[in-house]
């Protein structure tokens, strides 16, 4: 991956690196996208239906960015942590905002 000049070594270290990034890029990305959609649906200053559609569109726009970032981050743990922190932050704001009435 990004670490060495010769990325062709296929030891367990390389495989674990790839596996963790894939985890961050798949499940992590979906979590971030889902929570981004949820948070935006609750906080965007629009009518409820508009906030839902707009939030969902934005979530889809950031999702590929999250995948790419998971593979560009300096290390696999950093990728996982970044996705985790983003999810926590988005989920936290969504939770604090509460369901609109």
């Amino acid at each position: 991956m990004t670490a060495g000049a010769k990325p062709r070594h296929k030891g367990w270290r390389y495989r674990a690196n790839v596996a963790l990034r894939i985890l961050a890029g798949t499940a992590g990305t979906y979590l971030v996208a889902a929570l981004a959609a949820a948070m935006l649906a609750r906080i965007l200053p629009m009518s409820r239906a508009e906030a839902v559609t707009t939030g969902t569109m934005i979530a889809f726009a950031i999702a590929p960015g999250v995948v790419v970032w998971a593979f560009l981050a300096r290390g696999p743990w950093r990728a996982l942590a970044g996705v985790g922190i983003a999810a926590l932050a988005l989920g936290g704001v969504a939770w604090l905002a509460g369901a609109p009435v």
């Binding site: 949820a38 935006l40 649906a41 939030g55 889809f60």
Partner: peptide, 20 residues
Amino acid sequence: FTGLLTLASLSLPWGMTAAY
């Protein structure tokens, strides 16, 4: 991108769940 969004209510329904 637009194709992905046509199926959004099925693949990413969490905005709807959060608001409704």
